[in-house]
Design a protein around this nucleic acid. Structure first.
Lengths: 346, 346
DNA sequence: CTGAAAGCGCTTACAG
DNA sequence: CTGAAAGCGCTTACAG
């Protein structure tokens, strides 16, 4: 595995009979070069198979074309789509993305932040509420352009551009739909409310229940205490739900949670939607494949990822200085899990 | 967005009253430094919040701690798990991963390869058979350590370490299981056989059919001509299957394909497994959530990703020079889609 | 054990 | 329009 020495601008210059800075000018189009010289240089580049060294360029310019994407779980449908949107948008503007998968581990969050700083990334996108909140202050200290997705960081000393979903109206959509189906006894099932987004979903749920004059049964507010695999969590919550008789409908704070719940209910012979209606949140790809297909509050994930990336790109280009806060509106995707068989009247 | 100048080793050296190379020695533990000096330096590092510059280090050392991961679709369950395994394994050895999502686009494959070369990555993992086969020669030319997952590149002029699944025995497991259920008329449904892996699945299917003395009906060999979304493709293939009466079982070359097929069959009131048995390939997370849960040939994806990463790490460390070819054995995960209700005899 | 020097591959003024 | 020079932040011999 003898690595052959890569040709440098110096080698190109020698072959083309010019100086090395002239090669630099040709490559970057920075200063005007006579057509004749340009051609000689391009030919030499071609001949040697010269490829610029991004490290040297970055070191000199004090600026790179790399960006860090911090997400908790690349395998989940939700973050997979986010990653795709971010990566594609950044790539189109010439940036290349470091994948930082933290598994919600605060130590790893720290490790990654450190690694990204060492790499002199031009910017960072954080796609979930970091467990280790102290890290936000670090971003500020190192002055790295940062955009937060699905969260908003509030601190008196600094503000961070964010792209979020209107989670209050997401819950309103869900409850309104349940109200229309005639459901009375509605269960709210959720992972721990560790993020702003989840807190708002819960708050929105209570607000909407009040608005539609539905009674909240505190027995039916099922919020887990510990964070772990959401599908398993749903499966466990499903067991709790089985203990309650007379539940009409379940509003789960994420699709994955809903999948676990449905699995458990179905194992016990409960029919969805005939016996119990289920609504999820996120609209991950799976939700239209599972049986019954899942009614869910849809987040425009790809749009949000794209928008966040665009904001970051502007920041990295210093095009825009003001702090931006974008909020998207959710929509309700109605599928089988909430539509009881229609009775046809002749 | 005034970026405050980051402290350098020079700044640390000045504060600690030593020279800059001494700081380097302390940071890297490369040469012995007196305990007293070390302490002074560490205190200065702490005080200034010094973080090493990976670009400068990489430039000087002609070696980085970055690796490129080239995958076609991060959103799919299969590659999501691969990405997770790769990223985690490399991270544990101090490498940080560039995510290169190609969407099976040969131009993007080229663009990414170029970007990775510019970044001076220490190595590259390719997790699928590249569409643009010429690229493999480029890797060789630039002498970048490379490992291929789920494929094997055969060229007289060079060999590339690979981690694959034994796809012949995967098909044997599937057909054997179908044989045992009593299925006679077996349909083979697949995306285009653009990769070695898929070709071997097909070959393995024919071999196994012969072995179990099952007749292959060429009408039931459904191989798509164009590559597109696999679930949609399965949905379309499902329509073709409906045209054939008397199909006992379907062996789909991937789970996603099977999902699409099942969706179509179920829409037409066909019961799985009562009417038709379905077997998939890959064991993506979804396959145990869908209803009925899907019997499938399981690939040890995480293991394969981990093994491939470990091989790459050794190559990058120049620990091992020989070309490695690893082959994993698949296993059959039997779920509802192939188990007809058991008749209990009293 | 410590310090002075060279150089990795570039970009960026600046002089001609 | 072209060339000589400095320097980005490090590592790595090498001399003391």
């Amino acid at each position: 595995m003898q690595r052959t020495k890569q040709p440098t601008m110096k080698d190109v210059a020698k072959l083309a009979g010019v100086t090395q800075p002239t090669v630099s000018n040709v490559v970057n189009g920075s200063e005007s070069v006579s057509a004749e010289v340009r051609e000689r240089v391009l030919k030499a580049i071609e001949e040697l198979g010269y490829v610029p060294n991004a490290l040297a360029k970055g070191l000199k310019q004090q600026r790179t074309n790399t960006v860090g994407l911090i997400i908790p779980d690349i395998e989940s449908g939700f973050y997979g789509e986010i990653a795709k949107g971010v990566e594609k948008t950044l790539r189109a503007s010439g940036y290349i993305t470091f994948l930082c998968n933290t598994f919600y581990n605060p130590d790893l969050e720290k490790v990654y932040l450190n690694a990204l700083i060492q790499q002199n990334v031009a910017g960072i996108i954080v796609a979930y509420p970091l467990v280790n909140k102290k890290i936000y202050a670090n971003f500020n200290k190192f002055n790295i352009p940062l955009v937060v997705l699905d969260d908003k960081v509030e601190d008196e000393s600094f503000t961070i551009p964010s792209v979020e979903l209107n989670n209050i109206s997401g819950s309103r959509l869900a409850v309104e739909h349940l109200y229309r189906t005639g459901a009375k006894r509605i269960c709210f099932a959720s992972e721990p409310l560790f993020s702003r987004a989840l807190q708002l979903r819960y708050e929105g749920f209570r607000q909407a229940m009040e608005k539609f004059e539905l009674e909240v049964d505190e027995q039916l507010i099922l919020i887990e205490n510990n964070q772990y695999d959401k599908i398993k969590m749903g499966y466990n919550l499903g067991a709790q739900i089985l203990l309650n008789d007379a539940v009409d409908a379940i509003y789960a704070s994420s699709d994955n949670l809903a999948f676990g719940i449905m699995k458990r209910l179905q194992e016990y012979g409960i029919k969805i939607p005939e016996d119990i209606i289920v609504i999820g949140y996120d609209d991950v790809p799976l939700s239209e494949l599972i049986s019954p297909t899942l009614t869910t509050v849809s987040q425009p994930k790809y749009q949000m990822a794209k928008k966040g990336s665009e904001i970051l790109i502007k920041m990295m280009n210093k095009e825009e200085n003001e702090t931006t806060e974008v909020m998207y509106e959710p929509s309700l995707i109605i599928r089988q899990s909430s539509i009881k068989a229609v009775k046809v009247n002749s």
